[in-house]
Each structure stands twice: as C-alpha cells, then as structure tokens.
Deep mutational scan, measured.
Amino acid sequence: MQRVNMIMAESPGLITICLLGYLLSAECTVFLDHENANKILNRPKRYNSGKLEEFVQGNLERECMEEKCSFEEAREVFENTERTTEFWKQYVDGDQCESNPCLNGGSCKDDINSYECWCPFGFEGKNCELDVTCNIKNGRCEQFCKNSADNKVVCSCTEGYRLAENQKSCEPAVPFPCGRVSVSQTSKLTRAETVFPDVDYVNSTEAETILDNITQSTQSFNDFTRVVGGEDAKPGQFPWQVVLNGKVDAFCGGSIVNEKWIVTAAHCVETGVKITVVAGEHNIEETEHTEQKRNVIRIIPHHNYNAAINKYNHDIALLELDEPLVLNSYVTPICIADKEYTNIFLKFGSGYVSGWGRVFHKGRSALVLQYLRVPLVDRATCLRSTKFTIYNNMFCAGFHEGGRDSCQGDSGGPHVTEVEGTSFLTGIISWGEECAMKGKYGIYTKVSRYVNWIKEKTKLT
C-alpha cells in the first residue's frame, strides 16, 4: 500500500490518463441519441435557420407576430419608411378606419389613436360632414345658397324668414311668412316636400332668348283662358290664391305678392273693366268669414305684352289694390325667389296649380277651390304637342294621358313649387288646347323671366 501511494504521488498524470480511459469505455446513459432527441424537440425550422439574422431580410411573422416588435424591426421587413409607417399605425392600436367614419364618399386613412378623412370636392370637416359648395344638395341650405369668396357655403332665406341657429334652416321672422300653410287642420295635408338634388348652379339658368321682337298675326285659340281631375282644397291650404270678379264672377285667378299687390295673367284683364279681388276665398257660393274683398285701382301688364300681336306672350300683369290686405292664416303671400332659384325650383319637376275653373272641358265651374299636382314636361315634348308657338318664356306641365289639367277660369292662378315646406311661385296658368285632352298640356308663363320686374313694381313704400 505504501508503494502504491508513492507511485500516485510521483505520477499524477498517469492516474488522470487511467481515469479518462475508464470513462470513455463506459456506456453513456444520461444523453439520448440524435434521433430520439429530435422526437422530443420537434420544432419547425425557421426561415433563416442556421444563418445569422443580421444578414437576412426581415420576416413579418418572425419579427412582429411571434413577439412584439419595434418600429426598427418592422422597418427591416418593409425596407421602406412609408410602408412601415402605414403598417405601424394599425399594428400599434388597430384600424381606426374600420367603422368607416368618413361621410359623403370620403376616404379614410388610419393613424395612431386617430384617423384622417380625405374629402371629395365640396366637403370638409373631420368626417367630411361639412358642405362647402352650393353645387351639392344646395349646400344643405333649406332655401338659398351662395358661395363666399373663400368658396364656403353661405345660406340665406327669402323675405319674412331668418336663418336658424344651425345656419342652414329657415324659420319665420314674421307672423305670416310667405308660402307657408298655417291653418292647423290643413298642415297635415301639406304636399310632399321637395329635397334639393345635386345641381350645376353655374349652368342652372337656361341660355334662352326671349323672342321679344317676333311679330306674329293673332292666333285663334280655343278655350285658351284655361282644375280638371283635381281635388277639393281645404280652407287655408292655398292662402296665396285669390279669385278675380268682373263682368262675371271667378273669371280668373291670381296670387298675393304682398298686402297691396296681386300677380295674374295679362290676358285676364281689360282696361276700363272694374275688377274686384277676393282673398281668403274657399267656396265661392258661401260666406265663410275668411274672405277679404278689395278693388283694383291700377293694372300693370308687362311692358312687352301686346294682345294685338299675341294674347299669351309675356302673359303676366300686376294688380294694385285700393287697401292693403290683412295677412292671416287664410290670406298669405306666395314666396318669389330670384331668377336663378325660381328656375331651379321649376326644374324640380312638379308643381301645384289651383283655381275655381271648370271641372271638365266646357263644363261647370268649381264651387270649392280645386288643386292638382302636375309634372313638368320637357321642352321637346311640349313643342311636338301643339302647332302653336311655345315661346321661351312659357313652359308645359300636365299629363300625356289627359284627364287632369287646369281649365277655363283658372287662368292667372299660381303654379307653385314647394321647397322644404315653403311654396314659391314658378308659373302662372296661361293657356292650353281644350282641357285635359290626351297628348295636350297646360301652358304656363315662366315666372323666372319676370321676377325682377315683379319685385321692382310691387315694392311697398
């Protein structure tokens, strides 16, 4: 034993070699072989497995989906700052455009905790909710729209109204504003409101030439003092309507412009014939205590009207009353817009006519005020429907199939267009061939041609 100890002390290297040989010859039971080890760690190889990531292109799944990435790591994937920024906006807080917040056709661009709407022409605001041009839906104005110097929408209202708090709607500024039905039992019968379409306001006024200088022999019209197929109006439903009495009662109609003036057809009036105007009328054979009678003290036909040349060209006249009318729910003026808007309103496509005229061709006159909704007829169809001249200051309205029309005794009465609950004068009943005849239409004086003249002559002093 002493000898062994001496050998170990003198030859430590020998001992180490012996131990190493023993270990190498022993069977290893701690580690699995290569094949079995792979069965336990069965993990798919990654895209760049075996390579240094710093030297390969980034992978979106590896960089940002398996674990949260930084902007720089995302930049490695896209290799483009702009594309990385677009991805980053949604990656950080989701897609803010998912709810489609942009209105009126706006395009949404996502941002971090926010979004941006790219608005089409005519709109602005956070969600493109603000109209900035009158060309689109009248700028959301209830009545009139004008573009300011910086191309912003400025709404306005006709006389007797003021802008509401929203700067879009119009509200009454006087007790009985024009064009409004205020009798409670008839307010439910107000005709369907007309909503502004998209309009090209630059070209809204037709490029028409008034044929002022045409000389033409007097034409022989049949029954051209021209509501057939209409309905009984309720008291106060058309408070701007008046009836004219002269040699015979209810020979023509008219509309209240203001307390002192009536507008009617020029062919209705004769110099030297006494005319009485009755406002607030409903049943011409009954006294309903809503009527107001006034005498006409002055007749002003349009300066281009000449019955000797043509009885229905420039067929418009103004009547001055001896005493002002007292405005109330049964006696209310009709609204008159400017030339541009009167023309736009007419193009809405349908209007209402009213009167006490004959209820059928050569038949009896109506006792109760009649009204009828009539569609506008395109000019080409209008011209083809008659052998008589249709001037540019006239328009056609009615039904091709016949059966409904204005008729004798309705002449001078109103053709009105309702705009968001307020009625505007767009025409004056003038003439036609018979009444409600198939293929024939009622012919009306186009008020847009005469609004400046009306307003100039009827100013209240």
Rank of each mutant, 00 (worst) to 15 (best):
F348K: 08
A37R: 10
P197E: 08
N80W: 04
A233T: 08
P324I: 03
R364T: 13
Y341K: 06
P324V: 04
A366C: 05
V242H: 00
F238T: 04
V183M: 11
K457T: 15
Y47D: 07
C134M: 03
E53K: 08
G402V: 15
W453K: 00
G412R: 03
I334F: 00
V181I: 11
T194I: 11
I40A: 15
T133R: 09
I316M: 03
P235G: 05
K51I: 09
N313W: 09
T332M: 06
K440S: 10
C435W: 03
G105V: 00
G355A: 13
D33H: 10
E82M: 08
I443K: 03
D198P: 14
S11H: 13
T389K: 07
K387H: 15
Q90A: 11
T422C: 05
F87Q: 15
Q185F: 15
T16F: 14
H267F: 02
K457A: 10
V227A: 11
D110N: 14
K311V: 07
I428A: 00
P177W: 01
D410W: 14
C117H: 01
V183S: 12
S156M: 10
S350I: 07
I344T: 09
Q241D: 03
Y330I: 03
E208D: 12
D198N: 15
S430C: 05
S187I: 12
A279D: 01
T426K: 00
P197L: 09
Q2D: 07
A149T: 07
L19D: 02
I443Y: 06
K45C: 04
C407Q: 04
E73P: 07
A233G: 07
V359S: 14
K39A: 11
I299E: 05
N258D: 04
G229R: 14
H400D: 14
G402S: 15
K188E: 08
V92K: 15
P239I: 00
L369F: 13
H400C: 06
I40D: 15
I284W: 09
K455P: 00
D223K: 07
V181C: 06
E116P: 00
A266I: 01
N38I: 08
S169I: 05
K362V: 05
E323F: 10
G106P: 01
V242N: 01
K438F: 09
V257A: 03
H314D: 05
S350N: 15
I7D: 04
A26R: 01
G272H: 12
C97Q: 00
W88K: 11
C157H: 01
L369G: 07
G230I: 15
N127C: 02
L460P: 11
G254F: 01
R364M: 09
S255N: 03
L325E: 00
W240L: 00
R298S: 09
Q90F: 08
T381D: 13
A149V: 13
N306L: 05
C178W: 00
G439M: 04
G402Q: 15
G421S: 05
G280T: 01
T386S: 12
T186N: 12
L163A: 03
A164S: 06
K446P: 03
F71S: 11
I443H: 04
Q167S: 12
V368L: 10
T186F: 14
F221R: 12
T29G: 14
K168A: 10
Q216E: 11
D338T: 11
G160T: 09
R191Y: 07
K339T: 10
P239A: 03
N36F: 08
G21T: 15
F395D: 01
